[in-house]
Design a protein around this nucleic acid. Structure first.
Length: 495
RNA sequence: GGCGCUAUCGUCUAGGGGUUAGGACGGAUGGUUCUCAGCCAUCAGACCGGGGUUCGAAUCCCCGUAGCGCUACCA
């Protein structure tokens, strides 16, 4: 509907996300997928998922699963695939053979050991190493003879001279002198294709029009463009995304903390929040909007608006966005989300289910907890005292409000206050916020004391912490019977 | 070392010849208040350096510097 840009006709825009299944879905990979997805959706294009599993040693099925799970969780849906690159190896080999036949590639008998040795020597001498094309100079007869003798040979691409330039959709004009590019290996001596070959062969076959990937691929791009040309194919457009950085401005990695998408899920982040945060890492709509739905992003997304500078992953901001999303969530939705956690803690019961006797009440508890929750995991942490009598008095709360002080007196006096409060609350009817508040304040006033002298110990009696939603809100939520019992319990604890 | 990319508050960013350089997170202060969170208000906080072009440069160009990335028969 909106695809009238040049290049979008005749088949439309096709992009791909091509992770290698050697681990979890990294947030950097997630963001790459996200930008590809946004771009495809913006232009009514096709988003292809391709698993680059040509490194059989390191690729695992578990990794494929976690990547797929991560994408699905983020709400990134693919139109085609997942395709497994390893299954396309024959096609990759065929391309290499063709280049060989056309004289655009050649056999190389140099051993990995020899190459390593030469490289190390050059490095020691302080000079840059590039493959010396020793095997390019071999006489055709000799090559044939050694091949016939069964000597293992890699296939190298003969990199043509001259500049290679492209108009990067993020960076603008970018160019390399191909003199600095060595003759890359297309086929290893065991006959398996390497990344650059497989990538180009598949992108050609899948008719990819836009390659949107990380900045770390910039130096692969001239090699691949040369390969496209050699293969007689039109190179796609390229867009290189800035890297996600840690606080030290180095590429985000495990030593910076959590880097996997599923890890953020487990830590209580909402997929919409992570998606939103990741999108804003390097891209902005330009009008100051921050909290945006996918649809709003799709409506205004352009690759040109992506920043060229690497962006530091700031978890504080993620947490803030997450709290915004949590606030918008109906408590019934939150109930569904926290249920597994509560079940694990043995705190769930059937009457909390939809339609259950305590359902309404439970939703009110969640509602009360919502404003101060930054992550979903906060609910499981805070909801305990509402569901069970088995909760502890937090040491920091005891330290803050139950220690003897000139103003509040010692434990005996605090306990006496709690008992007075208990007596007064026992008479409150109905037991709602207005009436309980009137009772407590009336009691304090009558004794010429600040209400806080009753409120703080009451909070600890009710939930064990120095922090909670409004005191009368939780008082009503805990309910009369249980509140009175808890006042007794704390009074007993103090004496 | 070589090649490449990048450079606006601590962080994410807007702006792209003339602006009091705007917003958000985080921080600080005040207000609301029973705590915390929230909310409201206010404050502090930036154009890497040097040259050029220009009446005028954060913005365009060059040089430098710094950071990062790549430099595999990994992807």
């Amino acid at each position: 509907m909106t695809s009238h840009e040049p290049g979008s006709g005749g088949g439309g825009i096709r992009v791909r996300f091509a992770p290698s299944p050697t681990g979890f879905l990294h947030v950097g990979g997630g963001r790459t997928a996200l930008f590809n997805w946004l771009f495809a959706r913006r232009h009514g294009g096709t988003f292809v998922l391709r698993i680059e599993d040509t490194d059989l040693e390191r690729s695992t099925e578990a990794s494929v699963r976690t990547i797929l799970d991560g994408l699905a969780w983020l709400g990134i849906t693919w139109d085609e695939g997942p395709f497994f690159q390893a299954r396309n190896i024959e096609a990759h080999r065929a391309l290499a053979r063709r280049l060989l036949a056309e004289g655009k590639a050649y056999h190389c008998f140099c051993s990995v050991e020899d190459l390593d040795r030469k490289r190390a020597a050059a490095e020691k001498a302080g000079s840059a190493w590039k493959y010396d094309r020793a095997c390019l100079r071999l006489a055709p007869d000799e090559t044939r003879r050694r091949l016939a003798a069964g000597e293992p040979a890699a296939v190298r691409f003969r990199v043509p001279d001259g500049p290679v330039a492209w108009e990067d959709l993020v960076h603008g004009a970018t160019s390399f002198e191909s003199g600095v590019i060595e003759d890359i290996v297309l086929l290893r001596s065991d006959g398996t294709p390497t990344y650059n070959l497989s990538c180009v062969a598949d992108d050609i076959e899948m008719r990819i029009t836009h390659v949107i990937r990380g900045d770390d691929h910039i130096s692969n791009t001239p090699k691949q463009i040369l390969l496209y040309r050699a293969a007689g194919a039109e190179p796609p457009r390229f867009a290189h995304l800035p890297l996600i950085l840690g606080a030290d401005k180095k590429r985000l990695s495990k030593r910076h903390g959590a880097v996997s998408v599923t890890e953020y899920r487990d830590r209580g982040y909402l997929p919409e929040a992570l998606f939103n945060f990741l999108a804003l890492l390097g891209w902005s709509p330009g009008d100051g909007r921050e909290k945006m739905t996918k649809e709003e992003m799709i409506a205004v997304f352009t690759l040109e608006a992506i920043n060229r500078k690497g962006a530091v992953f700031d978890e504080q901001k993620l947490e803030w966005i997450n709290s915004q999303y949590i606030n918008d969530l109906p408590s019934a939705t939150i109930a569904g989300i926290v249920r597994p956690d509560l079940e694990a803690l043995g705190l769930w019961s059937a009457d909390l289910d939809p339609g259950g006797a305590r359902r309404e009440w439970f939703l009110r508890v969640l509602e009360a907890l919502k404003a101060r929750s930054k992550r979903l995991t906060d609910f499981a942490r805070d909801v305990g005292p509402f569901l069970t009598e088995r909760f502890e008095y937090r040491p920091d709360a005891v330290e803050k409000y139950l220690k003897p002080s000139p103003k509040t007196g010692g434990p005996g006096e605090i306990a006496a206050r709690l008992l007075l409060l208990r007596e007064s609350l026992a008479r409150v009817e109905p037991f709602d916020e207005t009436h309980t508040e009137a009772a407590l304040r009336g009691l304090a006033e009558g004794r010429g004391e600040p209400a806080a002298h009753f409120i703080h110990p009451l909070r600890i009696a009710l939930v064990g912490t120095a922090v909670s939603p409004g005191i009368f809100t939780i008082l009503v939520l805990v309910g009369k019977e249980r509140s009175l019992a808890r006042l007794d319990r704390l009074a007993a604890f103090l004496t």
